[in-house]
Design a protein around this nucleic acid. Structure first.
Lengths: 229, 229
DNA sequence: ATAAAAAAGCGTGTTTTCACTGTTTTTTGG
DNA sequence: CCAAAAAACAGTGAAAACACGCTTTTTTAT
């Protein structure tokens, strides 16, 4: 009995390719006696390898989005499939609406940007463990702006796979005609994608599409569409 | 005499807008008894405020590039001007050649990406204190690639102010004609900028220019040109 | 001081991008 | 099943982007 902890200890995994950042967060959050970091990985592949055959599974996984090899989008899809009991708290530098909506849609239990205070991270981890999810101000704001004006805006975050593919090609130096070839559709249909996305994303030129795709995280998300899971 | 440290203690400042990251690095690097973090700031303005009238100045300043309000480019220019004795070690997520070359050109004493190992950060800080600078593999690689092929490539990192301004406008939805108005030059001269940058940056379209500007960090650098110092 | 180099300017023609008004085919929902 | 919605396809004209050869002005370097 004397060895029994005074409070429940949470087993934590953390996935981030920035070694200094990852180990820094481990060091910082380990000052809270509630947390016990059992897995530290630099990308999704390393995480999944360490989870496979692990003696004990983490309660919560802190997950960055932008990582080489296997990124956050791919990782969370594998996690929810293989380890549905592990709660995922996205902890990332990306604060754009697309990333937030997409990760929540993929099953994240919370989303925090790295500029939050350590105390908020602490609160979020406890809340997720106790209540299943933590809705940060960022998530609420993104959701609100998405649902604003009769769900029209929300459609922005529900781009089809082909629209994401088209947006990806818009970030290259291919002409629309060459994009049509790549996508095996007629140039006129490419025109339809262009016009539709002009309206959806409120831009007027291809440069607008390309910049939006890069800034919003969509171009980063594209990478994860074909490679894994 | 009994209180004298066994080794010299380095006074460190750290500037990073990601609170969790910054405090994490403080926590992690404070495990090395050589380091004493005396200033923690979330951007250049906060750093300069804390330096102004401080009892003791840091020996080394760890500096992120991308920050709101006053970014790394602006901060290092103020630091080298007002506090030339403070060594600057850039510690950032950006690993593109432009950011590396630009920060070294602005007087950084070292440049590390956040995915480095904590041990390398430790080595870099000691080396900078003892020898004045630390040349990481990233810096050497960027310099090599820059000096390759008779310095022609190097010119990429020595874009003129007007070229940076033009690149910035290329990331907007303005037409070249409108850009000409904004820059107070003729549309034909805008054409010259375009052609010159096509060659310099090895792209063929405006989308190529825009994507390059965003990916390479040039667009981020632009922000710091007119606002401060 | 002056030659070389860089910057700014000019005209023209081609290709690409964008806007507009349509039709046909496929998918979706009740 | 059938109506409605979404996706795909079509032609045309205007605007913007791109390529080419060339002149003038300003800056730089020796």
């Amino acid at each position: 009995m004397s060895d029994a902890p005074l409070f429940e200890t949470l087993k934590i995994a953390i996935v981030d390719d920035h070694n200094v950042v990852r180990e820094g967060i481990v060091s910082l959050m380990s000052t809270y006696p509630e947390f016990h970091f059992i897995i530290s990985a630099r990308n999704g592949r390393e995480l999944l390898n360490k989870l496979d055959g692990a003696k004990e599974l983490p309660d919560i996984c802190l997950l960055e989005i932008n990582m080489p090899d296997v990124n956050g989008y791919q990782t969370i899809q594998q996690l929810t499939k293989l380890y549905p009991l592990i709660k995922v708290l996205v902890l990332t530098a990306h604060d754009d609406d697309f990333s937030i909506m997409k990760m929540m849609q993929l099953g994240a239990n919370g989303y925090l940007v790295k500029c939050c205070q350590p105390e908020e991270l602490y609160e979020a981890m406890l809340t997720i463990y106790e209540e299943g999810q933590y809705l940060s101000n960022e998530v609420i704001a993104a959701t609100n702006s998405a649902y604003r004006s009769k769900l029209i805006q929300f459609r922005n975050y529900l781009l089809t796979k082909k629209e994401v593919l088209f947006l990806h090609f818009c970030c290259t130096e291919l002409s629309y005609k060459q994009i049509a070839d790549k996508m095996h559709i007629s140039p006129r249909t490419v025109d339809d994608y262009r016009i539709k996305l002009f309206k959806k994303l409120k831009v007027r030129t291809r440069v607008g599409l390309a910049i939006y795709a890069v800034q919003s995280g969509i171009e980063a998300f594209y990478e994860s569409m074909n490679t894994m899971g």
